[in-house]
Simulated assay, not measured.
Amino acid sequence: MDAGMKIKAAAIDLFARDGYAATSIRDLARAVNMTNAGIYHHVTSKEALLADLMRVGQLGLIDATDRLLAHRPAPADRLAVLIGSLTAIHALNPMTTRVMDGELRSLTPGSSARDEIIALRDRYEDRWRTTLAEGADQGDFRIPDQRLTRLALMAMCTGTSEWYRPDGDASLERVCAEFVAIGLASVRSRVQVSMRLDLSLLPDYPWEPHVDPRVDPAGRHPIR
């Protein structure tokens, strides 16, 4: 791992555990055994580092979602993919996704970086908005409030970054399947969906810390 990637890995770990505001450049330098000047050789500022991590994270999420949604025109199939993939991404990358989800507040209001991350977040959430709206329009879903339904379903999925453990009672595959069933039931869908999530299509965040050397059956994502 080169110095730049070591800095990103340490930053994700510190930002997720201690919070961006409580992490200093000195903390980051200590974590990678560098001087403050050495850190600034690779990053222009702590905020620029955060913005870069969030940008790459959001772009990876969007790209993976679009690949998984390809050739799935039915709203129920699309919703199943959205639920399963967001659940798995947060379970497999808990530190990265905690930073992506929780540190937007740390970017300077009115800055181009903050505006960019908000736009990327909105691009991703548009996949959910469109899917729920199409399902309701076609009569596949019965949803009293599409916005509240979207927020509730996404919160269910992202919560896995806080509680999922690979050595727990439920495998990741089971968690994803149960969440898909819960999600389809919440929109009162009568469509039967059979989906096996291809973990090889999920985004790769190489800075995610504490990678377990064991590999999942797809041969790509580490199982944590």
Rank of each mutant, 00 (worst) to 15 (best):
L53T: 06
L53R: 08
M34I: 00
M100C: 08
N33Q: 14
A133W: 08
L61C: 11
P166H: 15
I62L: 08
T158E: 07
S186C: 01
S111A: 12
P166T: 06
A113Y: 09
S112C: 04
R127K: 08
R188M: 12
S161K: 15
V215H: 03
A37N: 12
T35E: 03
K6Q: 15
D137M: 10
G168T: 01
L199P: 00
N93S: 12
T149C: 13
D18C: 06
P217S: 09
P206G: 05
P222R: 14
E208I: 08
D198A: 11
M195Q: 10
L104R: 12
L199H: 07
L69E: 10
D198Q: 07
Y124V: 05
H90I: 02
D212L: 13
A9F: 00
S45Q: 13
H90T: 13
L61W: 09
A51E: 02
R105H: 08
L172C: 06
A155P: 01
Y40S: 08
R105L: 02
L107T: 14
V175D: 02
D167H: 10
L132C: 06
D212C: 13
M154S: 07
Q58K: 12
L59F: 10
P213A: 13
V81P: 07
R150F: 02
G38Y: 05
M100N: 11
R121T: 09
E116W: 12
E116G: 03
R121D: 10
D212R: 15
A133S: 13
E116M: 13
G19L: 02
